[in-house]
Design a protein around this nucleic acid. Structure first.
Lengths: 191, 191
DNA sequence: TACTAAACTTACCGATCGGTAAGTTTAGTA
DNA sequence: TACTAAACTTACCGATCGGTAAGTTTAGTA
């Protein structure tokens, strides 16, 4: 029934996200994914119809998580400048907890410049627009152009993403306290 | 003869690098590449034997360019601190002129954590070791551990790469002077 | 002109790709 | 117990994958 279907599909999407993040869209076959799930690839087709549709659902879930982050921030009881700082902090925390999200976003950024008219990308666009809407209200950026505001958002997200991707490597060679200390410096630099 | 073979192979490698950087290793088939070159895929096989070997030569050429950069820097007539600054500047310049190099390196960084025992990665390792050797002589990093020095190098390269990837997007929405101004700030922040 | 090696093309090959269609099992319902 | 819908598996399919083998063209040499 419906109550059983959703957790199963979520397991599919979770695994797919991790594998796409690790090896890229073309690096993962439906057979690979099914094998990881202990099923046949037709089980995936049954739930998602096509590989592209599965990928779309993966990206949709990812954007939903970011929409939740920005909704939380916008609902906070403080001014735009504090909200922008809070957003950077929240995104940073999210990336640390879910580095596979960061990896997939980085792959999307890499793929963006080539297949620019694809349907995939629009999933993150709404989130980006909300971010630009917020930064436009801060003291620093209020009088700058829309393009400048967009670039600032793009840069901030990119910087956070890159550090998140580096995270596992850095934690392997540093201790956690040191990484935490660097994080504080990092967020100061960003703002 | 040999005098004709090399330019032809270089054209193959140039095109392959650009396509791999744009779409990733699995996103480019030999047929795609051959079509771009106006040849059949067997012409590629003739020159490189396998797709993996072609990719290896692409990475080898890329690392040769970075080896040249660091060799130039090491030969400069100044102290280690100035050399480290010079290296960052040179890498930054290189990335601006050849953003496809930056894109391919970013893909390699993304792929690294998964297929960590691959032969591909060792191409950049020599360059990284030279960088660590240099940073170990600077005042700031001389008394830190090898792991910390490695992390610092890794971070600096990553930051430069990310900005290079963003470059085309940023130049499209900002004017060149503004990007140049940001570059100066960027290098200050990095050091 | 005869010859040779380099640089290809044509013709295939088995393996794997994403996907279709038709069955089968599982779990809940009346 | 009979039935039903969900969640699969088995059996295929044409297209494309990377790669092999055998020819053909091109360009330089003696």
């Amino acid at each position: 029934m419906t109550t059983h279907q959703k957790p199963a599909k979520e397991k599919f999407i979770e695994t797919a996200l991790r594998m796409f993040a690790d090896k890229g869209f073309y690096g993962v076959s439906l057979a690979d994914l099914a094998s990881e799930l202990g099923l046949t690839k037709q089980a995936i087709i049954y739930h998602f119809k096509t590989k592209d549709a599965l990928y779309a659902e993966v990206l949709s879930g990812l954007s939903a998580r970011y929409d939740a982050v920005i909704d939380n921030v916008l609902a906070a009881d403080c001014g735009a400048d504090e909200k922008w700082q809070l957003l950077l902090q929240e995104m940073f925390n999210h990336m640390e907890l879910a580095p596979e999200d960061a990896r997939l976003i980085m792959r999307e950024l890499l793929d963006n410049s080539e297949r620019a008219q694809d349907s995939h990308r629009w999933y993150l666009r709404r989130f980006l627009n909300e971010c630009v809407g917020l930064i436009a209200q801060t003291k620093t950026w209020a009088e700058r152009s829309l393009d400048e505001q967009t670039a600032a958002v793009y840069q901030a997200i990119g910087a956070i993403n890159y550090l998140a991707i580096s995270g596992p490597t850095l934690e392997a060679i540093w201790d956690k306290d040191r990484v935490a200390g660097m994080n504080a410096v990092f967020l100061q630099t960003l703002s």
